[in-house]
């Protein structure tokens, strides 16, 4: 069984979590071009590597960030959004 550490609830089985995709910077819809907006909406950084991702712990309703290598599936660390430095 794979495990993942929720920053609020500790280590839990992976089946309790939902993947939310890579953390991405939203361009300002008022000032960006149509092309920039379409890129933000549709395109993804699909190449493998270390990524910051959104994950969701279902039973407790906690969204948090995991830094994960998408090639090896190793999680370096997890933390609540905005609390990166506290970890």
């Amino acid at each position: 069984m794979k495990l993942l550490k929720c920053p609020m609830n500790g280590v839990r089985p992976l089946s309790e979590f939902v993947f939310g995709g890579e953390v991405r910077e939203m361009p300002d819809p008022n000032t960006c071009s149509d092309k920039e907006w379409a890129t933000y909406v549709h395109h993804r950084n699909g190449a493998p590597g270390m990524k910051k991702e959104w994950w969701y712990h279902g039973p407790s309703g906690t969204w948090f960030i995991a830094e994960r290598n998408t090639m090896t599936d190793e999680v370096a660390r997890t933390y609540l959004y905005g609390q990166e430095d506290k970890q």
């Binding site: 890129t39 549709h42 395109h43 993804r44 950084n45 699909g46 190449a47 493998p48 998408t70």
Partner: peptide
Amino acid sequence: FTPRVCKMVDVQTPIII
């Protein structure tokens, strides 16, 4: 391997693996 090859030419796609 599409995202890796597309990265070589800087072509963006929505593809994830």
